[in-house]
Simulated scan of single mutants.
Amino acid sequence: MTDPYRLILASASPRRLQLLQQIGIEPYALKPADLDETPLKNESPRKLARRLSESKAQAIYKAYKEDETLSGCYILAADTVVAVGRRILPKTELAEEASQCLALLSGRTHKVYTGVCLITPKGKTRNRVVETRVRFKRLSEEMDPYIASGEWRGKAGGYAIQGIAGSFVVNLVGSYTSVVGLPLNETANLLIGEGYPLRLKWLGGAQ
Rank of each mutant, 00 (worst) to 15 (best):
T2G: 01
P4L: 11
P4G: 08
P4C: 11
R6W: 08
A10F: 08
A12K: 10
S13T: 00
S13H: 04
P14S: 06
P14K: 10
R16V: 08
L17F: 04
L19N: 02
L19E: 05
L20T: 07
Q22F: 09
I23W: 04
G24M: 09
G24D: 03
P32L: 11
A33T: 00
D34W: 02
D34Q: 02
L35D: 00
E37F: 01
P39R: 09
P39A: 00
S44Q: 07
A49H: 03
R51N: 01
L52F: 05
E54P: 04
A57P: 01
Q58V: 05
A59W: 14
A59D: 13
Y61Q: 14
Y61W: 12
D67V: 05
L70C: 05
T80C: 01
A83C: 12
G85H: 12
I88L: 10
P90Y: 10
L94V: 06
L94C: 09
A95P: 11
E96G: 12
Q100G: 14
L102A: 08
A103M: 15
L104H: 04
S106I: 13
T109D: 08
K111F: 09
L118Q: 15
T120D: 02
T125C: 07
T125V: 13
R126L: 13
T132V: 09
R135N: 06
F136R: 10
K137W: 07
R138P: 02
S140F: 12
E141A: 15
P145W: 12
A148L: 10
W152V: 00
K155E: 09
K155D: 01
G158A: 00
A160G: 15
Q162M: 10
S167H: 08
S167K: 10
S178K: 01
V180G: 07
G181Q: 10
L182N: 13
P183Q: 09
N185L: 13
E186R: 11
I192K: 14
G193L: 09
G193M: 07
G193Q: 11
Y196E: 06
R199L: 15
R199Y: 14
W202V: 01
W202P: 02
G204E: 15
G205E: 09
A206D: 08
A206L: 14
